[in-house]
Nucleic acid binder design. Structure first.
Lengths: 138, 138
DNA sequence: TAAATTTGCTTGCGTTTTGCAAGTACAAAT
DNA sequence: ATTTGTACTTGCAAAACGCAAGCAAATTTA
């Protein structure tokens, strides 16, 4: 519920004020790869985020219009998290992070395969993935 | 001097382990816009980074090969910081951050003008800016 | 239908990181 | 010779983090 205070008028700074930490973009990543996730799904990710940190980040990402909550079709106990348009618009940025990391780190096979596809036609990949992610968004 | 511990094999995670905080990319931004900066130049930026945080971030960015120190031509008391190739390679990512911010925040005039140029020819902008930033890099 | 489990969080608490102010060492200018 | 500039370091209080445990509501199992 806390307000995000802008440190300056710079767009880079404004952006970092929202998702400039070690966890927020990992949540976005999970939503981009899995399309939608429950609270428990996020906890299962390799980086092992703490439950309180996850809760605070989900709250802040929702407050900032990057994600939304939806009812889970299977159960009232579950909550589905999805990217909003604003969240999906982070896709080009996420791709560039992947491309940079591809040059300076060792990627797992699986991600490397997706990146090959991206390198062939970046625009096309973004266009199709965006449509896919926005399906059933209210 | 501390080691960066990787939380997982994910490239997004690996990248965030290096520059996933509120300050590192602002240092990179300053170096991209000004080409090279002294310690004092970074302190002058609008966000008002604390001196100890700046020192620790410069150290960590250098350790991770994103920036390098160089002698200042004018004075032995000054230190010039510059982006390495690895640092310059963050340019596409920085551009995408700007483009995202352009959609969801209000940009200052000056940055808006640069972005118009970027929108016209992203590839060209990156190519030329990269050459400019790498000039006189040892 | 009662008990156990799942799910999405919240709470406590010790550790780490941050932010602010002040201090220091060396170079350069006065 | 003294003051100023530059690049940091240090101390300390406040905030954020990370781990474990707890909790309420929904769901499954016995």
């Amino acid at each position: 519920m806390k307000d995000i205070k802008k440190r300056s008028d710079c767009p880079i700074s404004n952006s970092l004020d929202v998702w400039g930490d070690k966890w927020s973009l990992l949540i976005v990543r999970d939503l981009m790869f899995a399309k939608e996730c429950t609270y428990g799904d996020f906890l299962k990710s390799d980086e092992k985020i703490a439950t309180n940190i996850l809760a605070s980040r989900l709250q802040m990402l929702e407050t900032n219009g990057i994600i939304t909550k939806q009812d889970h079709p299977d159960s009232k106990a579950k909550v589905l998290y999805k990217l909003t348009q604003k969240g999906v618009d982070l896709l080009p940025l996420m791709i560039e992070i992947n491309l940079w990391a591809d040059k300076y780190f060792t990627l797992p096979m699986e991600r490397k395969a997706i990146l090959e596809e991206v390198k062939k036609d970046k625009e096309g990949f973004i266009r199709e993935k965006t449509i896919e992610l926005l399906k059933d968004t209210d």
